[in-house]
Design a binder for these strands. Structure first.
Lengths: 343, 343
DNA sequence: TTTAAAATTTTACGCGCGTAATAAAAATTG
DNA sequence: CAATTTTTATTACGCGCGTAAAATTTTAAA
């Protein structure tokens, strides 16, 4: 690396012997120039370490190469994992991911939508908060930028969506539980922040009905995203009051189940399939920590990989106006039963 | 909101009746203009919804208002929580946080350092990977931008650092364990990715020595950030081989302990303080999930709040050349014993 | 009311790059 | 080899805003 410090493309044009417009072309797409000039530029780049000014670039480009990614709650490893996947896919497409978390707060979500506009993203991947989302604002974003919703649909918007088939996933879990032991009662939050919970409840009811069974639902209080805490404290109450002492409990998501398992352990209630176990517990999501609960949690996994991959693919279809770029289509991927020790 | 769409500050100057330079001043700092003009501007803003072009602003400003935040592993709720705290503090200072995760990968960390330069941050808050970090690159970043390291120091850089007092924290845990039961053996990874682990090991050895006790350390294999998996699988091996059957085990961090607890449960080893319990288990970090393990994990908490708050404060001290802005000072906050059921 | 101080307006230039148009050079074709 | 096509160079303008300097207006102080 030379000592002369290059401060703009003009200067780099001089030292590299390539004209500035050609350099501009190169930085926009290295393959758009002749191999020999590409080599010359890259040789000069080795010597002088110049990078174009991002702000000047994005000010003038028709489109930036930023992709906004918004998740509802990044402190949840579930979303952290998905975000990581998506980030990598976006980078591989030569774009720059901008990751924002709504921290479970609808106002923060709106803040994020606003702050996204500032970076003039080429496209947006948005996992909305759900029930609490400002639908009008989300809708505006969808019409301003190419956007793909994922994980949690806002159906009234009728917009491109990629997600988990909650109905089918709950279905196979209920089937499994009914087939292998006592039919499940259902544990959920009265006001679940995420509308997927509604689909899951309905699917539970329908599945039970199809098996000719009565459904039974515990709808517990709690509105925050502290699901473990809610599962734990409400679980303790229900165990104390003898409302839950045996049988099978299906939770609307793993995090509630994780909290409940802690409560059950503390109350001396043995969970699992073996004999000597008082009750079976099952979750939903295949949360990264569900492998390490006591006992390991039986659950239904999202097809993480397909969902993140398809979200990104569909976004780039939209960006490039490819055939796949249908902006109103909903695309669901089936869940997979993960049998572990808890049920 | 009016129908006339404002596309730049010039146009907004016309409709608001304020000159462009004054508007520029306002958007840079709303308090820097007279109250009456501020009111006029904000009234016009209600009607016309104009936001200055971020790229044009940052191209010309001496300094952007971006603060880069890099954490080693965002899928770890521990860092997700810290990041969330720091983000909020940064926003409250009127800056824009840019959050990047190194995903446990040193190459990704270097990528992040490079990509940070593109956004010309006003300052950087960096929690390095540690052992695997490219020290030269981190050092360069520190000299290029006002930077505060947190969580994990790189001592050879001798740079501003805010973190957890691993020595003291391990100390109080060892004291507690020795005082209340069998003295602990220590469980760690042979090649811990994070150098804090070394401080903790040393502190364990010293504490034991001070108590006149022999230290005993299990250094297990595994290099990744899948700590739970490592704690689980190595734990199972050590329990099978009867190397760990009773007594007290102190883990270098909660995530290893969480994995181990799953192994112990699976192997029928009862953990806790009560009678009928084979062994006690303690962790370190007060990981968000440590409350929900079976049994709940006794651990040492970081002073999350002080660490994030002080990191941000010190960064802004640096930015504004205040007295507190000593760029070579290390600042540690003591840990706090969190007694739960596991030890 | 006069005077000084503070805030705003006017004017003008620059930031670093995208990009269009035309001219020149290089590579490809037959 | 000449004719054609492709690529690069030259020139020039614009993007939206920061910011400096001088002129003007507004406010505060005396």
């Amino acid at each position: 690396m030379s000592d002369t410090t290059i401060k703009n493309m003009e200067e780099f044009a001089v030292v590299s012997g390539i004209s500035r417009p050609t350099l501009s072309k190169y930085f926009n797409d290295p393959e758009s120039v002749r191999q020999s000039t590409k080599a010359k530029i890259e040789a000069a780049l080795e010597l002088h370490a110049y990078r174009p000014n991002m702000y000047a670039m994005n000010q003038n480009r028709r489109s930036t190469r930023n992709i906004g990614i918004i998740v509802p709650f990044l402190a949840d490893p579930f979303f952290a994992e998905i975000a990581r996947n998506i980030e990598n896919l976006v980078i591989n497409e030569g774009y720059r991911p901008i990751l924002l978390s709504s921290h479970g707060d609808p106002r923060q979500e709106v803040e994020n939508l606003i702050s996204l506009r500032d970076i003039k993203p080429a496209g947006v991947l948005l996992a909305p908060l759900g029930r609490a989302s400002n639908i009008a604002e989300v809708g505006e974003l969808c019409s301003e930028f190419p956007t793909v919703l994922f994980d949690c649909n806002i159906e009234s918007l009728n917009h491109a969506f990629v997600g988990h088939n909650n109905t089918q996933a709950t279905d196979i879990m209920v089937d499994y539980l009914v087939r292998t032991g006592e039919p499940p009662v259902y544990f959920e939050m009265k006001k679940p922040p995420n509308p997927n919970a509604n689909k899951r409840r309905l699917s539970y009811i329908n599945s039970m009905e199809r098996h000719g069974l009565e459904s039974s639902i515990f709808s517990v209080d709690g509105e925050s995203w502290n699901f473990e805490e809610i599962g734990y404290s409400r679980g303790k109450e229900l165990i104390s009051s003898k409302d839950i002492t045996n049988g099978t409990v299906l939770f609307t998501n793993d995090r509630l189940a994780i909290g409940f398992l802690a409560a059950a352990y503390e109350m001396g209630l043995r969970v699992g399939r073996g004999n000597g176990c008082a009750l079976r517990v099952a979750g939903h999501d295949n949360h990264p920590y569900s492998r390490f609960t006591c006992p390991a949690l039986t659950t239904v996994s999202h097809d993480y990989d397909a969902i993140s991959r398809t979200s990104v693919t569909r976004l780039f279809d939209l960006l490039e106006n490819r055939e796949g770029g249908d902006s109103t289509d909903e695309q669901l991927f089936p869940g997979k039963l993960i049998m572990r020790d808890s049920a």
